[in-house]
C-alpha cells in the first residue's frame, strides 16, 4: 500500500466521472421514461384512456429495450454515439448508451408507481370535473411522489452498476480504473478501493433517497 497515495487523484476523477455519467444519463432517461411510463399507464385497460393498440406497442418497446444486454447495447449504439458526441469513448460517450438502457427501465418504474394509486381517488377527481390532464398532473403524479423518488433511487443505483460496465469498455469512471489498474496491471489494492467506493456511492444514494422519500410521504408515516 506504499504508493497508494499517488492514485488518490485518479480515484477522485473516477468518482466524479461516474457520478457525472450516472446523473446526466438518469436525467435523460427520465426525460423519455417518465412520459413513456405515464403514457403506458393511462392507455392500460383500467387507465384514464384505455387504448389497446398504443398500450401494446409501448409495452413491446419497453420490454425489448429492457431485455437487450447492456454490453450489446453499448456496441450497437457506437454509430449513434459517434454521431451525437463525436467519439465513442469517454464518460460523455457512455451517457448515450446509459440513457438508452435506463429509459425503458424508468418507464416501468414510473408505471409501477402510478399503478399503486387508489383508483377511487381518480374517480373522485373525475366527479369533481377534473380533465385527464388535471388527473395526471394533480392526482397521479403528486400522489406517487414518494414512490417515484424510491424509483429514482433504484434507477440511479442500477446506472452506477451499468456505468462500471461502460467504464470497462472505455467509458471512464471507476469502472475504467478497476479494469486498467486492478485487472490489467494486477493492482489488487486499487481494485479493492474502487469496489469500496462503488459500494459507498450506492449506499449513500440509497440512504439519501430513502430519507427524502420518508420526509415527503404524508401517507405512510
Amino acid at each position: 500500500m506504499g504508493d497508494f497515495a499517488k492514485y488518490i487523484p485518479e480515484f477522485l476523477t473516477g468518482t466524479q466521472e461516474t457520478l457525472y455519467m450516472v446523473l446526466v444519463s438518469a436525467m435523460f432517461a427520465y426525460l423519455v421514461g417518465l412520459p413513456l411510463g405515464v403514457w403506458v399507464t393511462i392507455t392500460d385497460r383500467d387507465g384514464l384512456r384505455p387504448n389497446r393498440a398504443i398500450n401494446s406497442v409501448l409495452s413491446v418497446i419497453i420490454n425489448v429495450g429492457r431485455s437487450v444486454p447492456f454490453i450489446i447495447l453499448i456496441v450497437a449504439l457506437i454509430p449513434l454515439t459517434r454521431f451525437l458526441v463525436g467519439t465513442s469513448i469517454g464518460p460523455t460517450a457512455a451517457i448515450v448508451a446509459l440513457s438508452v438502457a435506463a429509459a425503458p427501465f424508468v418507464a416501468r418504474m414510473v408505471e409501477t408507481s402510478l399503478k399503486e394509486i387508489d383508483l377511487g381517488m381518480i374517480e373522485a377527481a373525475r366527479t369533481m370535473g377534473a380533465t385527464d390532464w388535471q388527473i395526471i398532473f394533480r392526482v397521479m403524479l403528486p400522489e406517487s411522489v414518494p414512490s417515484l423518488i424510491r424509483g429514482l433511487s433504484i434507477t440511479i443505483i442500477t446506472l452506477v452498476g451499468y456505468s462500471a460496465m461502460a467504464g470497462a469498455v472505455g467509458g471512464g469512471g471507476l469502472g475504467f480504473i478497476a479494469i486498467s489498474y486492478g485487472y490489467n496491471r494486477f493492482k489488487d489494492d486499487v481494485m479493492l478501493v474502487t469496489v469500496i467506493l462503488m459500494i459507498a456511492i450506492v449506499s449513500a444514494i440509497q440512504l439519501l433517497f430513502e430519507l427524502v422519500a420518508k420526509a415527503v410521504d404524508k401517507k405512510n408515516r
Binding site: D118, G120, M121, E123, A124, R126, T127, M128, G129, T131, V139, P142, E143, V145, P146, V216, D217, K218, K219
Partner: peptide
Amino acid sequence: IALRKQIGVIFQGYHLLMQRT
C-alpha cells in the same frame, strides 16, 4: 364538466388525496 360540478359525490372510502393537507 359544468354538470359534474353540480353533483358532489362522497364515498365510503373517502378517496382523499393523501399527499395533500
